[in-house]
């Protein structure tokens, strides 16, 4: 007997008697309006647009100000110090993602139409993408003020940014009671640490060590991806009980 015959026989074996009250049940459900509840379909774009307006305006103002401040500092021949300001961009993202915990909004978001996971993913995506896009825009501008090529500037800016984002995300995941403040502090400390690199470890900015910067960049990207993935998958969802 082949699989198709087995399946056919199984269907004949598992035959149940007809339910008796089906029509009556659906009539009553319709009378109570349970069947007529229309749910509006929302596209991913609309959902992202909603989340975009939900993110506090001051986060965008802070990001914009930071990016301009970095460009201004670079234009004043400040050496490699302005690159240490990029972790503060990550602080904005982490502060925003910790907002629902700060305001005890988690339960409200979970009770709402969209799952907390999708809200968190959308916000992290928007803030991450827009901040990263901002950095991508200013990097060619900054290149004019340095003798470094674009790739080098890219590495010097992205490594502190991603390192702070990774460490902050890791802290936020491990410390359940964090409301965003701890991860913001980590970003500030990362900024201070990277600001000390040109002072105490000037040799790290030599061309021969670019491979090291690239390796750290890849490591941070992988670490951050895993961190965000785990944060989202560990986010509690209401379980039907």
């Amino acid at each position: 007997m082949d699989n198709a015959c087995i399946v056919e026989q199984m269907k004949k074996t598992w035959i149940a008697p007809e339910p008796a009250g089906k029509e009556e049940f659906f009539l009553r459900a319709e009378e109570k309006g349970l069947l007529n509840r229309r749910t509006t379909v929302i596209t991913h774009r609309e959902f992202l647009a909603i989340q975009l307006f939900y993110i506090e305006k001051r986060i965008w103002v802070l990001s914009g100000f930071l990016l301009l401040f970095i460009v201004w500092n670079c234009s004043r021949n400040a050496g490699n110090y302005p690159f240490a300001l990029t972790p503060l961009l990550a602080a904005g993202i982490l502060f925003e993602t910790g907002r629902s915990g700060r305001w005890n909004m988690t339960e409200l978001e979970q009770a709402a139409r969209f799952s907390a996971r999708s809200v968190m993913l959308a916000r992290t995506f928007l803030l991450g993408v827009i901040n990263t896009a901002g950095l991508m825009i200013i990097i060619p501008v900054i290149t004019r003020f340095y003798a470094y090529p674009v790739l080098r500037i890219f590495l010097y800016m992205m490594v502190p940014y991603l390192t702070a984002a990774f460490l902050g995300s890791l802290y936020e995941r491990k410390c359940r009671t964090d409301r965003g403040w701890g991860s913001v502090l980590i970003c500030i400390l990362s900024s201070v640490a990277f600001a000390s690199v040109p002072l105490f470890f000037r040799q790290l900015y030599e061309e021969r060590l670019l491979v090291l910067w690239a390796a750290v960049l890849i490591l941070m990207i992988c670490g951050l991806t895993v961190c965000i993935w785990k944060s989202i998958s560990e986010k509690e969802e209401p379980v039907w009980s």
């Binding site: 339910p19 008796a20 009250g21 049940f25 459900a29 349970l34 069947l35 509840r37 749910t39 379909v41 009770a111 139409r113 799952s115 209401p238 039907w240």
Partner: peptide, 18 residues
């Protein structure tokens, strides 16, 4: 039959996930 109707009642009333 009772549990089937209970299942659908709970499903129709919650509709939390779309």
């Amino acid at each position: 039959e009772d549990l089937t109707q209970e299942t659908f009642l709970r499903f129709l009333k919650s509709r939390t996930y779309h």
